[in-house]
Design a protein around this nucleic acid. Structure first.
Length: 560
DNA sequence: TTAGGAATAT
DNA sequence: CATATTCCTA
């Protein structure tokens, strides 16, 4: 609809409407300050003692955007107390005194800035920067009042980006989808409309946002069509995107990241459709979990003042399973293991906002179908049937193909040493075929019939290709198959291990690894790896008092 | 009632 | 086609 335009209007006279708490004992200077601020369209609430101010803050919860506090020789105590009490409010100190220590104290106690007193209009006007900064740097709870600010800014940035700047996304030369993000709506809103805010500093603000951990990165369709009006929750509203995703498509960075592009289901005019591309935060990188999680439901924010409102744009979106997204998907499936890989869990693991269980179910369906197409061949190759099959397709294992594997462990307790039963050089397998892939998950390599069309350049991301954990560098030397068959499950297993060993040693991870190992004993290990992890795991287990006797495994693989 | 998964629709 | 949606089952 008109959301964006609204927002632009809202921004045109930024920082109009920002509420400034002014704390100054000196009524004269307070009055002066007030009038200056008001001239700049700030809304000023002035107080002459900190108790009053604090009361106002607590009663008028989240009502202020920024505070300006005058600190004088005599009131430093009160001021400092104020600072402590109002940590959530970006507070700017102003003062006539030139005392480094005072300054230091203030800053140390959380003041965002200390301004010496003859205040230029410039400086005064720019106090909004702290509001914006806070809006973006706040990790946990972005206070309600900041949210609109943040959102407005973000959508504006988004617009700017879509508009002028050459998107660096197509560094690879192929990114037709996202590149199209321009729409009539935006253009109609006029070029002068969104105003790089009057101060050059905003640029800076923008930069820092770009380099920040998370970036709001979403484009919404603004046009509405008459046809549909079902308000259900399929839409995606906000997402954070770690900026890495922006410029690196080809060289998929180690950190997992995905990006889904949701296309509006607009049958009539395919070119007008807008897309929201969503990038996901990687589960293991900087983006604090909660910021992502929470950002998922921002729509409740209702600003007391002019700006914004999160328009809930409910549209049926079509998920574009980009390689990145698929990669995540595959990773999730791998982590879960075949029999645990159900939509809801995958969804959970992928941590991609906007994806629904249905989306995943659908994709999973396809995924499995493709598997089945590939699998029989693999198994056939590995255990050539005595009588040649007339058709390879004939043999396919709707269920439990595992049974065709040698019963390493049938239904007994898995001895420790057999946690990775496939610890066998490939050569020892019939035909010397490499066996990196599990029977369940042979490298779902790009069969001729399956190319990743939308993003042809990304070979590494074709179906089933696991993400190579950088720590393992190269693949085991299998020239003929190198790059074709990729070790499947184990990569994750190990990269997971390693990762979490760095972070916080063990426990759940080990748990998980063991569980997975038990669940999927047939998964071989890449040759290059050394066994220690197993022992390490066991050690850790016993250290924790967990019996090395794993739960029965029979249920998981031989049933159903 | 939910969710998974196949079948079917778009 | 690739996804979404529907339908059936557990």
């Amino acid at each position: 609809m008109i959301g964006i335009e609204d927002e632009l209007l809202g921004w045109k006279d930024f920082p109009k409407g920002l509420k400034v708490l002014l704390l100054d004992e000196d009524s004269n200077s307070a009055a002066e300050m007030r009038s200056r601020l008001e001239k700049m369209d700030y809304i000023v609430y002035s107080f002459c003692n900190e108790c009053e101010a604090l009361t106002a803050i607590s009663s008028k919860s989240e009502g202020f955007h920024v505070a300006i506090v005058e600190v004088s020789a005599g009131n430093s105590d009160g001021v400092l107390q104020f600072l402590e009490s109002a940590k959530d409010l970006p507070t700017i100190m102003t003062s006539n005194i030139h005392s480094l220590s005072t300054m230091m104290k203030c800053i140390a106690l959380g003041a965002v800035e200390f301004l010496q007193k003859p205040l230029s209009d410039d400086k005064l006007k720019n106090i909004w920067q702290h509001v914006v900064h806070k809006a973006f740097s706040a990790r946990k709870d972005v206070s309600r009042s900041l949210e609109p600010v943040k959102e407005s800014l973000l959508s504006m940035l988004q617009l700017q980006k879509a508009k002028g700047e050459a998107d660096d996304k197509n560094s690879n030369g192929t990114e037709p989808l996202t590149a199209v993000a321009e729409s009539n709506t935006e253009q109609s809103s006029g070029c002068d409309k969104y105003p790089a805010p009057s101060t050059p500093q905003l640029k800076q603000g923008v930069r820092s946002v770009d380099n920040g951990d998370c970036q709001y990165h979403t484009i919404f369709s603004t046009d509405q069509d008459s046809g549909e009006h079902d308000g259900d929750t399929k839409s995606v509203e906000t997402t954070y995107n770690n900026s890495l995703a922006e410029n690196t498509v080809q060289t998929s960075p180690p950190g997992q990241q995905g990006e889904i592009i949701l296309k509006e289901e607009n049958g009539s005019s395919p070119h007008q459709k807008m897309e929201a591309d969503i990038a996901t935060s990687s589960q293991s990188n900087e983006c604090p979990d909660n910021s992502i999680g929470h950002s998922a439901e921002p729509s409740k924010a209702s600003s007391p003042h002019s700006s914004s409102g999160t328009k809930t744009n409910k549209k049926k979106m079509k998920v574009d399973w980009t390689p990145e997204l698929h990669k995540k998907f595959v990773q999730a499936v791998e982590q879960l293991g075949i029999d645990q890989a159900i939509p809801s869990r995958i969804l959970e693991l992928m941590k991609v906002e906007g994806l629904t269980r249905h989306n995943i179910a659908s994709h999973l369906q396809k995924y499995r179908m493709h598997r089945r197409q590939i699998l029989p061949k693999e198994v056939e190759r590995r255990w050539p049937h005595p009588q040649p099959r007339d058709s390879v397709q004939r043999s396919y294992y709707p269920h439990k193909p595992i049974m065709t594997y040698p019963p390493y462990h049938s239904n007994h307790v898995v001895p420790a040493g057999q946690l990775y039963p496939a610890w066998v050089p490939p050569a020892s397998y019939p035909n010397g075929l490499q066996v990196w892939g599990s029977p369940y998950y042979p490298g779902w390599q790009p069969a001729e019939t399956w190319h990743w069309k939308p993003h042809p350049a990304l070979h590494a991301d074709t179906w089933g290709s696991p993400v190579v954990s950088p720590s393992f560098g190269s693949y085991p030397p299998y020239p003929q198959n190198a790059g074709v068959y990729r070790p499947y499950g184990m990569y994750n297993r190990y990269s997971m291990l390693e990762k979490s060993f760095d972070l916080h040693p063990a426990e759940e991870v080990i748990d998980k690894v063991v569980k997975e190992a038990i669940t999927k004993p047939w998964l071989p290990l890449p040759l290059g790896l050394k066994p220690p992890p197993t022992e390490g795991v066991l050690e850790e287990l016993s250290r924790q008092g967990i019996s090395t006797t794993p739960p029965q495994i029979n249920g998981s693989c031989c049933r159903r």
